[in-house]
Design a protein around this nucleic acid. Structure first.
Lengths: 219, 219
DNA sequence: CGCCAAGGTTGACACCGTCAGGTTAACGGT
DNA sequence: ACCGTTAACCTGACGGTGTCAACCTTGGCG
């Protein structure tokens, strides 16, 4: 099928050129060994092609998410978060097309995106079932996603700032987001008893922190 | 000066069209009542023009930041954060040009951006001088900025998701970022005594929460 | 065999960023 | 007062882009 060939060509162009404006209809067609308007046999316009490319990326993210289904729900959620950031930092061009292309704004809800996001909502719900924190799972997942996206997007947008290296950045973002989320979930309006607050932040943050060997207590 | 006229025209185009790809050299020139290549008398290329537009936006942000210099350093930092998000949500096109245009990535460190960011670092340092939390001010400010950017950027990129309205979103992002930051700052490796942790999160988060009337304690 | 639709091609249009070359107007030195 | 220099601007053009109308081409079917 030519359609698949075109999508592969688009993927390759993105990966090889390192910039999203190498993704032109003409270049895709040429790479697939076909004339330019042939692309319009399979895609309504350029936006449709780009959207199809994004579907693949979302699918890959979805696959990555589904792989980090470990036993502990907090470890699973932390794994999702880390995998997400790693993917974005490892595939900056794809991530930029996914999230920063101008037309992504008023796009109809992309099914693949919603599906991938659903994985995160599920992971959040699994955590909530343990009773460690509570609230609206979708809202919490949105907040987490925002935090992860913020770190990687800002790194991609302003790489000249004094960033830590990738793994440290990921660690920091996941932990800050985890701590903040659990505390916020525990105090929508006023503050709960301090020891509750600390205990919950403890459990959530420590689990999100992922290091299984980190339970030697403070002296 | 024609240069100023061109920048004003570019600003107007962005504001009126509501999309960044209305910002073409030809449109800017036409709006300024001048021929297209006249733009090249004042800007080396389109990127230079866009960068100049961004300088103005950064300047405006800087002005907004400097206005929220309240007495309490936490209130000031919270004010900065809220003002930042409000600006981004109120001027989505400008914010998108600032942070999501493809060429923003490898741009030389934009002085105006660094200066505006400096305000946030200063605000963080002021907070740190109170002893409520500690760490590297630049790193913490970067983390805060990431959190703020993440929320607004994700809203702009995926507006079809079930977002809360703007003020609620701002509230949530600022509080989550604040809580997360102070907790993370208190536990780089292992956990401190719980009551310390809670107390600090308390102070920081509550202050960032901005509501001055919120000090009726829990019963 | 003859037909016909799906899928491809050629050629063109409008728009974009950019540049070479010509025109104009202001200004300073003699 | 005149002329040369120079900066600012314009006309016209080039290559590249997304897109479309019109024309083939080819394989399957009555």
């Amino acid at each position: 099928m030519l359609r698949e060939e075109l999508l592969r060509a688009a993927d390759d162009l993105l990966a090889e050129s390192g910039t999203e404006d190498a993704l032109t209809i003409r270049a895709v067609a040429a790479r697939a060994g076909v004339s330019t308007p042939a692309v319009y046999m399979h895609f309504a316009d350029k936006e449709a092609l780009v959207e199809a490319v994004c579907m693949r990326v979302w699918g890959e993210l979805q696959r990555i998410f589904s792989q980090s289904r470990e036993g502990d729900p907090f470890l699973a959620l932390g794994g999702c978060a880390r995998a997400y950031m790693r993917f974005a930092l490892d595939h900056p061009v794809q991530y930029r097309v996914l999230m920063m292309r101008p037309s992504a704004a008023q796009a109809v809800p992309p099914a693949a995106a919603a599906e991938a996001f659903g994985y995160m909502v599920d992971a959040v719900e699994a955590c909530m079932r343990t009773g460690v924190f509570e609230g609206d799972a979708t809202e919490i997942a949105l907040g987490l996603w925002s935090a992860l996206h913020g770190s990687v997007a800002l790194v991609l947008a302003q790489p000249s700032l004094p960033w830590p290296e990738h793994e440290a950045l990921i660690d920091r973002a996941v932990r800050v987001a985890g701590f903040g989320t659990v505390l916020y979930s525990r105090l929508p309006g006023e503050l709960p008893p301090s020891e509750d607050l600390a205990a919950h932040a403890d459990a959530f943050g420590a689990a999100l922190t992922t290091r299984p060997e980190r339970d030697q207590p403070s002296p």
